[in-house]
Write a protein that binds this DNA or RNA. Structure first.
Lengths: 150, 150
DNA sequence: AGACATTAGGTGTATATACATATACATGGG
DNA sequence: CCCATGTATATGTATATACACCTAATGTCT
């Protein structure tokens, strides 16, 4: 195989991972900009909401629900804890740390909700409601398929 | 609005950004695992291929093509340069640094190509060819729409 | 030519991500 | 009871990401 045809432009533009990463970058910038007044990023609001919905919950359980590496989530939650948005409670099994959202964290979430909705509405307007639905369906399928241990 | 209904599960699962980020995490892990023998991550192979296809090219131009922040790409390319995969050439305008791929970088790309193809084929098998096509089309639309300055 | 704006790029700082590995605790078999 | 195994979490290290700000080079207007 010749060096100069190692990759073609068609292949490059067809990389599922590269396109996912690029889309994540541009969309994350949009959501983060919308959330700027709250001091929360979308990457922080996600775990906060998940803990609020499913907590008290351990790091490992939350990591599985969110498809985040345990060790990554451990450090993410440490930041949220330092800022007073979440707290931990030790269970009977002293290996566990169960996270829940503090009142301060609830306040930040309540403040973030309308801004998140604006960002989501903007995406809906940009893509169209049907396309957004289709995208979410595709992404769910990707997440389930690619995270399946096999 | 009551605190305990600040976000609902339906809203949470419908966040375009959160789902994109989760999909990117699981898919990146798949591609990175496939590429492990080459010592390249998919996040490094992308810029390398882009420079190979479009170079010599400046950081700012490449950043626009890949929808990456300039300063992020600057640091990413520094790592590729240290490892000898890319080199820079100063232009007449001494502000510019034009990047191109070295022979060593071409070798790594040639080694990575079949492994990348395996990962891509696995995604195609997991989703089905039509779904993968549809996903890529959706992502292109997202990237264009969300990165439009307006 | 000199003042100012524009442009290309880098730095400081903070966060997100994950693999390899270590630690602390729990549990079950001899 | 002790040791091996398993489980929950943290740490070490490296990279990816981007905003705010800074520097250097260039262009432009008078």
């Amino acid at each position: 195989m010749g060096r100069d045809i190692c990759f073609t432009t068609e292949q490059f533009y067809g990389c599922a991972c590269g396109n996912l990463r690029a889309a994540t970058r541009v969309v994350t910038r949009q959501y983060d900009e919308a959330l700027r007044p709250t001091g929360l990023r979308i990457s922080q609001l996600g775990p906060l909401v998940a803990i609020s919905l499913f907590g008290p919950i351990s790091i490992t359980e939350l990591a599985e629900k969110m498809f985040i590496d345990r060790t990554t989530l451990s450090r993410d939650l440490r930041l949220l804890q330092r800022r007073g948005y979440v707290r931990t409670r030790a269970g009977n099994d002293r290996r566990f740390r169960e996270f829940s959202v503090t009142p301060k964290g609830q306040d930040s979430m309540a403040q973030a909700l309308p801004l998140w909705q604006q960002a989501q509405a903007r995406m809906r307007a940009l893509l169209g409601n049907d396309n957004l639905k289709a995208l979410l369906a595709q992404l769910s399928q990707v997440i389930v398929a690619a995270s399946d241990k096999s």
